[in-house]
Design a protein around this nucleic acid. Structure first.
Length: 284
DNA sequence: TACCAGGAGAGCG
DNA sequence: CGCTCTCATGGT
């Protein structure tokens, strides 16, 4: 099978693939093209069905349904979000947006590249890394060649200069060292440890602090309570939840832990996308 | 042009 | 502990 259809409800594919949790999807002729693991795939949402096309025959589609989290009950998650006006506005804006389940290494490495970069630039950096150091992936006839995201082993073998040439700047030594520690097993990407321990493991890596660790935990390792706080979320907190009040970091984390519920990571992504698309960064 | 970007970490008082 | 500075590069 090169083409499969999946019934979907309350799923917004476009928003999900372009909201800043992943960086390799491109919109082309009303469809989305990307690479999941080592497979090229084209996705198209037609109302309540999702059409997926691959380059090579597929019998087991779980790699895709798991990545897209198609089996997840959307309304159950949104029902746990707080009922405050800002969250409700964010839900209205982002309806159907899902949290993906990405490859943990690709996700971690991508967010190591993301530090103080705009999303467009992150996409460029990752495109360069894949183009130069990824493995070729099968594509349909006549399609431009595509490569997978480079493994930790591959990046670990590069020089800092190789990475700087991919526009990583001061992130280059961090990505290199992280790749080496993951490749050697010195640091483990665990989806089964308690959240705090999994985060502590990740922050052993150079260039990985709480924000980037939480991104890897949420988008790659399935920790749905991991709550990345970047500049946009700080704007949301200051502008929406603590207007004209000084934010004490300790109090902020208590608020985050208690206010947003068991799927706070999802709620975070709603606020992030809402701020970027409908509120803006003014009055920071 | 000046400011800022899905930050982290060192140095300082 | 809390603040400031630096890191590299390019978008707006």
């Amino acid at each position: 099978m090169l083409i499969a259809e999946f019934p979907i409800t309350e799923y917004n594919l476009g928003t999900t693939l372009s909201c800043g949790q992943s960086f390799r999807w491109r919109q082309l002729d009303g469809a989305w093209e990307g690479v999941v693991g080592t497979r090229w795939v084209r996705l198209c949402q037609q109302g309540s069905r999702l059409v997926a096309q691959t380059a090579e025959p597929v019998t087991d589609w779980r790699w895709l349904t798991h990545y897209l989290q198609l089996e997840v009950d959307y309304s159950k998650i949104v029902a746990t979000f707080p009922k405050d006006e800002h969250m409700q506005a964010a839900i209205a804006t982002c309806r159907g947006m899902r949290i993906l389940r990405q490859d943990p290494w690709e996700c971690l490495a991508s967010f190591i590249c993301s530090a103080t970069k705009q999303i467009v630039q992150i996409q460029q950096i990752i495109a360069l890394l894949c183009e130069r150091y990824g493995e070729p992936v099968a594509v349909p006839k006549g399609h431009l060649p595509v490569r997978s995201f480079p493994t930790a082993q591959r990046l670990a073998a590069l020089t800092e200069a190789d990475l700087r040439a991919c526009k990583l700047g001061f992130r280059a030594p961090n990505l290199r060292a992280a790749a080496q520690k993951i490749a050697s097993g010195e640091v483990v990407l665990s989806a089964t440890l308690p959240l705090d321990e999994a985060r502590a493991e990740l922050t052993k890596l150079p260039g990985v602090g709480p924000k980037i660790a939480n991104c890897a935990l949420l988008f790659g390792l399935g920790f749905e309570r991991a709550f990345p706080v970047d500049v946009w979320i700080m704007h949301a907190m200051r502008q929406l939840y603590f207007p004209r009040r000084k934010i004490n970091p300790d109090r902020l984390h208590k608020f985050i832990d208690t206010h947003f519920g068991p799927y706070s990571g999802h709620a975070q992504q709603y606020l992030f996308h809402y701020m970027r698309t409908h509120v803006g960064r003014s009055a920071a």
